[in-house]
Computed example of a mutant assay.
Amino acid sequence: MDRTERIAELNDRRRRDHSYGKVVITRGIQALGHQAVMEVLTAVAAFSDFTPDNDPYGEHDCAVMTVGDHRVIWKIDYYDPDLNFASDDPANPAVTIRVLTIMLADEY
Score class of each variant (00 low, 15 high):
T4D: 10
R6V: 11
R6T: 10
R6P: 01
I7V: 10
I7H: 10
E9H: 12
D12R: 15
D12E: 15
R13N: 00
R14A: 15
R15V: 05
R15N: 10
R15S: 03
R15Q: 10
R15E: 12
R16H: 03
D17N: 14
D17H: 13
D17S: 08
D17F: 14
H18M: 12
H18V: 09
H18R: 14
G21L: 12
G21I: 08
K22W: 15
K22S: 13
K22Q: 14
K22L: 15
V23D: 10
V24I: 14
I25S: 10
I25A: 12
T26L: 03
T26K: 06
R27M: 11
R27I: 00
R27S: 14
G28S: 10
G28W: 11
Q30N: 03
Q30C: 04
A31H: 11
A31Q: 15
A31R: 13
L32W: 10
H34S: 10
H34F: 12
A36R: 07
A36F: 01
V37K: 04
V37T: 06
M38I: 06
L41K: 09
T42D: 03
T42W: 09
V44P: 06
V44E: 02
V44T: 04
A45Y: 09
A45K: 07
A45Q: 02
F47R: 04
F47Y: 15
S48D: 12
D49E: 05
D49S: 08
F50E: 04
T51F: 03
D53M: 09
D53V: 01
N54S: 03
N54A: 01
D55F: 03
D55P: 03
D55A: 03
P56E: 02
G58Q: 08
E59W: 06
H60D: 06
H60Y: 13
D61M: 09
D61A: 11
D61F: 01
C62M: 12
A63F: 02
A63S: 05
V64L: 07
V64R: 13
V64C: 05
M65F: 06
T66M: 04
T66I: 04
T66Q: 12
V67M: 06
G68L: 05
D69H: 01
H70Q: 15
H70G: 04
R71K: 08
R71F: 01
I73P: 06
I73H: 07
W74T: 11
D77S: 15
Y79P: 00
Y79M: 08
Y79L: 11
D80G: 01
D80Y: 07
D80W: 07
D80L: 06
P81C: 07
P81K: 07
P81Y: 08
L83P: 00
L83K: 10
N84V: 04
F85A: 13
F85Q: 14
A86P: 00
S87Y: 08
S87C: 01
P90E: 03
P90G: 06
A91L: 03
P93M: 09
V95A: 10
V95N: 05
T96N: 07
T96I: 08
T96R: 04
R98P: 02
V99T: 14
V99R: 14
L100G: 02
M103H: 04
M103R: 13
L104C: 07
D106G: 00
D106I: 00
Y108T: 11
Y108S: 14
Y108N: 15
